[in-house]
Amino acid sequence: MNNDLYIRLQRISAWCGVVLFVGMLTAFSVGHLIPAMSPTESPDDVVAFLKDHRTGILTCVSLMVLLVPFEYPFVVVTSLQLRRVEGGWGLLSMIQLTTGVVAPLGFFFPLAILAAAAWRPEIHSADVLTAMSDTFWLMYVGNACIFVLQVWSIGYASFVDHRRAKPLFPRWYGWLSTVLGVLLVPGAFVFLNQTGPLAWNGILANGIPSIAYIAWKISTPYVLLKAIKDEEKELAGKAEPALAAAV
């Protein structure tokens, strides 16, 4: 593969992260899943929600099925840039790659369960539909912890990039990734709380992590595109040489 095509494919892959992010916000808005439903809703309220928003929910799931695959090129290009930090495939790039490949399942499975609940709500009892709705929210918010090692591995790379005078991933992005990883941890406690800040609609398990995730999802393509531009110059022989003596 020639260098021009290689760089072009990397840029397209970085923009795939933007496509997924914008599409996800659109899909969840169409499905009336923003903000999250309260865990204390009665079974009758859950049934009413599924019936009233059936078309929106199913449209949301269909859009997400089309959009989630865009995460894969985004994950791969991120690992390719991490590989440059490590000087080859290493622990950080492989952790990011493996966790990034698994992470989309955190969308697919919960959304499939919600789609099944909204598909024919009239033939299921309120208890069954409530259980399916609960499963969706518990998996969707609780599984956010899958991303912890992924974002930490990317963030840590900004602190250990001693191969060049100017790190590929800036320090501020490293701190953002570190903080996001910490903020995702409370999601694990939604299984223990029906009310309060650690419930699936709570400020600690959902609200603050969502804001941090939005900031991270906007900044990551930006950082990646700058790193790809640096690699383009490097391949053309115009980049600043890596500080090999510092390794």
Rank of each mutant, 00 (worst) to 15 (best):
D4M: 13
Q10G: 14
R11G: 08
G17Q: 06
F21L: 09
V22G: 05
F28S: 06
G31N: 10
L33W: 12
P35S: 04
M37P: 03
P39N: 09
T40A: 09
E41Q: 13
S42C: 06
P43K: 14
D45I: 00
D45A: 09
F49C: 05
L50I: 12
K51L: 15
R54W: 04
T55E: 12
S62P: 00
P69Q: 02
F70I: 02
Y72E: 01
R84D: 07
V85W: 08
E86C: 10
G87Y: 13
G88H: 11
W89R: 15
S93L: 02
S93E: 01
Q96F: 06
Q96D: 02
T98V: 15
G100M: 11
V101H: 04
P104E: 09
G106P: 01
F107K: 02
A117T: 08
A118E: 13
W119E: 04
P121M: 11
P121Y: 13
H124E: 11
D127Y: 08
V128Q: 14
L129I: 07
A131Y: 11
M132R: 14
S133V: 00
S133N: 14
D134R: 12
F136Q: 08
L138N: 05
M139Y: 00
Y140S: 07
A144Q: 13
F147V: 03
V148G: 01
W152L: 04
S153Q: 04
Y156G: 00
H162A: 15
P167C: 09
F169K: 03
W172K: 09
G174T: 12
L180F: 10
L180P: 02
G181K: 05
G181M: 06
L184T: 02
G187Q: 07
A188C: 04
F189S: 11
V190W: 10
V190K: 09
V190C: 08
V190D: 03
F191I: 11
L192S: 10
N193A: 11
N193Q: 07
G196W: 09
P197W: 14
A199C: 11
N201S: 06
N201R: 06
G202V: 06
L204W: 08
A212W: 03
I214G: 15
I214R: 01
I214K: 04
I218N: 03
P221K: 03
P221M: 01
Y222T: 02
A227C: 05
D230R: 15
L235T: 06
A236L: 10
G237P: 10
A239D: 11
A246M: 14
V247C: 11
V247S: 14
